[in-house]
């Protein structure tokens, strides 16, 4: 059971420069509740993410994993409790929401690239118009990140001409072009062919190596084991269990966690 069955990326992470600063709180979620109409999707969520920490959220579908990270950049609104991102509390104040979103990158399951713009335009649009970066500079940054995700030659194509894995790497690069302090990943590999999962995970691992603060909702347990500081297990809108990956996988405490892990790790 300790052997992860998911795609394992053969790369060890140098842990020496991955010291987490205990003083820098990146995200603080305090007694947070959320309802969809009458349905109580998120119940009493308490989560503190330190700067540089990498968190993997796992759990069955419908457990509220995606909803939780979508609350962090206010794609979803919470009704009770507090969410504080980089010291800014999320309220209905639109300006504050945009301030937070500028510092928080998000990668979606279905990539959500802008199909009418070229890859380069996808990457430079927000830096130019949201950050006010000069066009030439934004394009240089975009090319830098395209090289990092290893597809600079695709810069002038349209998203529809790229494979799923390439599109997702572009989506990651697009978020990085805004130079975010935090990256949220919402099942980034779930819509990909098995052969393309690896290329996306490699990009995510290299991001982790650089000390990016990350919250990943994913079913890639190999990735969790290799990269995460902490694995959070959710069910029925609640955080059931959280632990360091080693302890989480080898010695789960809660019955639900044990059941879940026995289902996905063979």
């Amino acid at each position: 059971m300790s052997q992860p069955s998911e795609t394992t990326v053969e790369r060890s992470i140098n842990t020496s420069h991955m010291q987490i600063s205990q003083t820098d709180v990146a995200i603080d979620v305090i007694n947070m509740h959320k309802w969809y109409g009458d349905f109580h999707v998120l119940r009493d969520i308490n989560l503190r993410v330190m700067s540089g920490e990498r968190i993997v959220i796992a759990g069955p579908s419908g457990s509220g994993k995606s909803t939780l990270i979508r609350c962090v950049n206010r794609l979803e609104e919470h009704q009770e409790g507090q969410i504080i991102v980089n010291g800014t509390e999320l309220t209905a104040d639109l300006k504050r929401i945009d301030d937070v979103r500028r510092e928080v990158g998000m990668v979606f399951q279905h990539f959500n690239l802008f199909p009418h713009l070229t890859i380069l335009q996808n990457l430079t649009l927000a830096p130019i118009w949201v950050r006010g970066t000069p066009k030439a500079e934004a394009e240089a940054t975009a090319m830098h990140y395209l090289e990092r995700v290893k597809i600079p030659e695709q810069a002038h194509k349209f998203p529809g001409q790229l494979s799923g894995g390439q599109q997702q790497r572009v989506a990651i690069a697009r978020s990085l072009c805004m130079q975010p302090k935090i990256m949220l990943f919402d099942e980034p590999t779930s819509a990909l062919d098995p052969e393309m999962v690896k290329e996306v995970l490699e990009v995510m691992i290299s991001l982790a190596e650089e000390g990016m603060t990350m919250i990943c909702v994913t079913h890639e347990m190999g990735f969790a084991r290799q990269v995460a500081n902490r694995v959070i297990f959710m069910d029925q809108g609640q955080i059931i269990e959280q632990n360091e990956p080693e302890a989480f996988f080898s010695n789960p405490q809660h019955e639900r966690t044990k059941l879940f892990l026995s289902q996905i790790l063979h």
Binding site: N73, L75, L94, R102, F114, A126, V130, M178
Partner: peptide
């Protein structure tokens, strides 16, 4: 919906 969300998540007004 994802197009709106992607634009929102980039901080666009």
């Amino acid at each position: 919906r994802g197009q709106y969300e992607a634009a929102e998540s980039l901080g666009m007004g």
